[in-house]
């Protein structure tokens, strides 16, 4: 094999591929520098918006520091309203479509009554279990406390999804009790 062949068969392909990789990596790094702060901002804004939606009377939120082992397994985060209006709990409860797939955010006021609940994402059966995300079902929770949950009317054809939703909300109430005790 002549020297020019070696160059043509091995050096060039490797060199070109390496150069393309480097150029693209630099391009991506530059774009990332621009977009990363915007993405972070957008994520924060989306989370803040969801919290404000389930508890409009709060003026702002701060995370509550509670040991994970004291909370039900489904709880992701607990936030406290800075003006003392209540707590907001983010959870990933079990659903009919799988473990920890029913992601819900629940607002609970200072007296332990639910202000609002909202489904963030789920993998329930479309048309049946998915109706837990509809206002017809989850507006029933508004204004209830622990004892009121037994009166919830489940969705016909989706009793299991409904019960999972109720259990997840119960976890939220339990988490708020724990959070109150921790202060």
């Amino acid at each position: 094999m002549t020297e020019s062949n070696v160059r043509k068969d091995f050096v060039m392909p490797i060199a070109v591929l390496t150069i393309i990789c480097l150029v693209m990596a630099v391009l991506l790094a530059l774009t990332n520098n621009v977009t990363a702060p915007i993405i972070e901002e957008a994520e924060k804004a989306a989370a803040a918006e969801a919290r404000a939606e389930v508890m409009p009377q709060a003026d702002g939120f701060e995370p509550v520091d509670v040991a994970a082992e004291d909370l039900p397994g489904s709880v992701i985060d607990v936030y406290k309203a800075t003006n003392g209006a209540g707590y907001v709990v983010q959870l990933a409860g079990d659903g009919y479509g799988g473990k920890k797939t029913l992601k819900v955010i629940v607002g609970v006021d200072a007296d332990g009554f639910i202000t609002d609940t909202k489904v963030m994402s789920h993998s329930e059966t479309p048309g049946l279990g998915s109706r837990v995300a509809e206002a017809d079902f989850n507006d029933q929770f508004n204004g209830l406390d622990e004892s009121g949950l037994s009166g919830i009317v489940t969705i016909s054809g989706a009793t299991i999804s409904s019960n999972h939703y109720i259990d997840t909300v119960k976890d939220a109430l339990a988490a708020v009790e724990t959070a109150k005790g921790a202060e």
Binding site: D94, G95, Y96, G97, G98, K99, T125, I160, H164
Partner: peptide
């Protein structure tokens, strides 16, 4: 495959 939808929930619920 819809028949399997609740299988995990029912087995490990």
């Amino acid at each position: 495959f819809f028949g399997f939808a609740g299988i995990v929930d029912n087995l490990f619920g």
